[in-house]
Structures are given as structure tokens and as C-alpha cells.
């Protein structure tokens, strides 16, 4: 959760699309069974069959031991990857756009963009999966030091873009009305 400024309201909180987490989970299951698949295939391959038969129950126990340890490591890496997925979050408030990029467990980048500095907001979906499942990237162009602000693999980017533009419009309207008030005060 981010620390909100005075008078700031949280409008949206978002994460990457569920498909990204899903690919991590599928990747874990596929990599977890690799040693087991190799062991099963090794029993059938001609050049390893002799060794498998000679090894007997002892070899099978050693291989299953390695399979379980390997699966444990994959399980740990899955949770690291899911933690990164969960902590990789962005927020739209009525004043700012905050993008928290969790690169590693102890490597966290936080980028803040004030809505009044946004010049353009564009969305893009690349490929069949992104198009069909409705996720993609959002690019916000700014005039500041960091010229491009990219949020990747965001669910429903079109709606997010609309919300950002709407909130940006409100901020600009407020700025204009404050300027008009100041001009009027000055002319009086």
C-alpha cells in the first residue's frame, strides 16, 4: 500500500494480468516433473537401460530423492515468483500514477508520475494471447526527466487509460480554475 498525500484518494489499484501468474504456475509444474520424466525415459532408452536395471531399488530411491528435492526448489522459486507478481503493483490516485516494480525480493523500484505532467497515454496489446485475454501495456509520455512510463501486462488497459485521462482532466481543470481565480484577484 502506498502512503497517500493530503487530499489524495486512491482510484485504482492494479496488478499484472492473471495469465502472467498462470504461466508461472504452469512453468513450475512442467519444470518440477523434468527429472521424473528423464528417469522414466531412461528406463526405456537402450543405452541407459542396463544401468537402470543394475542400479535396482537403490538407484530408484536416489533418483526419487533428487526428484523430491528438485520439486522443492521449484516450489520455492514458484513462491518467489508469485510474491514478485503480487508485489508488482501500480496505483492511480486523483493526483499521481505510482508504479512499483518488484524486480527481486529485495529490489523494489518505485516510480511516481504526477497526473499534470502526463502528455499522452497510449495502450498496446501484442500478439494473440494479449489481444484475446484483454491485457497489454500502458505507456504514459511525460515532459519530465523520465520521458516514458510503462506499465506492462496490465489487465484491461483501455479502461485504465480512460481512468487516467479522466483524472488528469480533473487535475487540469482544477489548475485552470485556480489560475483564473488568481488572475481575477489580481485584476480587482
Amino acid at each position: 500500500m502506498i502512503k497517500l498525500e493530503e487530499g489524495e484518494n486512491l482510484i485504482l489499484e492494479g496488478r499484472k494480468h492473471w495469465f502472467i501468474a498462470f504461466t508461472n504456475i504452469v512453468g513450475f509444474f512442467l519444470s518440477a516433473i523434468i527429472p521424473l520424466v528423464i528417469f522414466i525415459l531412461a528406463k526405456k532408452w537402450e543405452f541407459t537401460r542396463d544401468a537402470m536395471i543394475s542400479g535396482g531399488a537403490d538407484l530408484a530411491s536416489a533418483v526419487y530423492f533428487i526428484c523430491f528435492l528438485w520439486a522443492l526448489f521449484m516450489w520455492i522459486f514458484l513462491f518467489i515468483s508469485l510474491a514478485k507478481y503480487y508485489l508488482d503493483v501500480w496505483y492511480v490516485t486523483n493526483k499521481r500514477l505510482v508504479d512499483i516494480d518488484q524486480r527481486m525480493l529485495f529490489h523494489r523500484d518505485e516510480a511516481v508520475l504526477r497526473l499534470e505532467n502526463i502528455q499522452d497515454v497510449a495502450t498496446g496489446a501484442k500478439g494473440i494471447i494479449q489481444t484475446l485475454l484483454g491485457f497489454g501495456n500502458i505507456r504514459a509520455q511525460t515532459a519530465g526527466e523520465r520521458r516514458e512510463f510503462i506499465m506492462r501486462d496490465i489487465a484491461d488497459p483501455e479502461r485504465i487509460r480512460e481512468v487516467i485521462i479522466l483524472e488528469q482532466g480533473k487535475v487540469k481543470d482544477k489548475t485552470i480554475s485556480v489560475k483564473v481565480e488568481k488572475v481575477e484577484e489580481g485584476s480587482l
Partner: peptide
């Protein structure tokens, strides 16, 4: 997390002992 890890650890220990 702990439940899954326990299953993998118990499996590994069991096969180490049977080895």
C-alpha cells in the same frame, strides 16, 4: 507454502532413508 514444502521434504527424507 509450508504444506507443499513439507510434502517435498518428507518425500526426500523417506527416499534418502530407503536408499
Amino acid at each position: 507454502y509450508l504444506g507443499g514444502s513439507a510434502i517435498f521434504f518428507i518425500g526426500a527424507v523417506y527416499f534418502l532413508f530407503s536408499f
